[in-house]
């Protein structure tokens, strides 16, 4: 099955399958008057995109989503990196890692429902910081698990070497560990960023309708059956992850001697 006669057409079919979802979103965003059973719409225009950018809401939704995801991504990555170091060298490594898995695998909606009362008491519900904290707890669990396998005897020896040569904890962190982990840090940031960027359940429950991220806006469009608007805003939701995957492949996977 791997001979060249079948490989090229097959690669083409697979490439089309991979491109189709994004291409369809772009197509749907420009489609107008697409009545059944027509295979193609009767009209194409970019009025959905114009409406999105002229309405003024979208910019706010986009910035809010970006701000939330960046805060969650960077906070969770840094906290997960440092915490996983403590856990990995600890004698209770396995039970502690087990605890880190729970917030990360549990359903965000069920987590949101159960923690809402606490957030209301702490005056964190219905606001940006509440959403960041709730998503951050989930992403922090992920980051701790992600870095769980990063730490090993070689890294520990490198750290000890820094101390032996007169370096401080800060020196070990900034001059040895962070540079050695830059690839893994970037990959973890991307994943934690996406946990927040794609989230709908936590924003819905903890945000209480007052935090309107891009996912909330998309769901509103789907509910209203505003298909071109839903497709156009879906394109905006898909674009940053595509960029992150590209950056991941281009820069991180090409780093020499990188531990991922």
């Amino acid at each position: 099955m791997n001979n060249s006669a079948t490989r090229k057409p097959l690669a083409f079919v697979l490439a089309v399958c991979c491109l189709f979802p994004v291409a369809f979103l772009l197509f749907q965003s420009a489609a107008r008057r697409w009545v059944y059973p027509n295979l193609l719409p009767q009209e194409f225009n970019f009025s959905a995109w114009r409406t999105l950018f002229q309405s003024g809401h979208l910019g706010g939704n986009l910035l809010l989503s970006l701000g939330t995801a960046t805060a969650v991504g960077s906070g969770a990555t840094l906290a997960g990196f440092l915490t996983s170091k403590c856990i990995s060298y600890h004698r209770w490594r396995k039970p502690l890692l087990f605890c880190a898995y729970i917030p990360f695998v549990i359903s965000p909606v069920i987590f949101g429902v159960c923690i809402l009362f606490l957030f209301i008491k702490l005056r964190l519900a219905d606001g940006f910081f509440g959403v960041v904290l709730a998503q951050g707890i989930i992403a922090y669990g992920f980051a701790t698990v992600f870095f769980g396998r990063f730490w090993n005897a070689q890294l520990r020896a490198t750290e000890e070497l820094v101390y032996t040569l007169g370096g401080s904890v800060w020196d070990a962190l900034v001059r040895a560990l962070f540079p050695m982990a830059r690839g893994a840090l970037f990959v973890c940031f991307c994943q934690a960023f996406l946990i927040s960027w794609f989230d709908y359940g936590i924003v819905l429950i903890i945000g209480g309708g007052k935090v309107e991220t891009l996912t909330i806006r998309i769901f509103t469009f789907i509910n209203e059956a505003s298909l071109p608007l839903a497709a156009a805003s879906s394109c905006l939701l898909v674009f940053p992850p595509m960029l992150l995957f590209w950056a991941n492949k281009k820069f991180v996977l090409t780093l020499p001697n990188e531990r991922l």
């Binding site: 991979c18 998309i218 995957f245």
Partner: peptide
Amino acid sequence: RGAISSLIYLPMALSGLVAAFL
């Protein structure tokens, strides 16, 4: 090999909400 090795990552950029919409 080729472009498909990169294109395979494209569907992973979809969120649950967008996949459901599609």
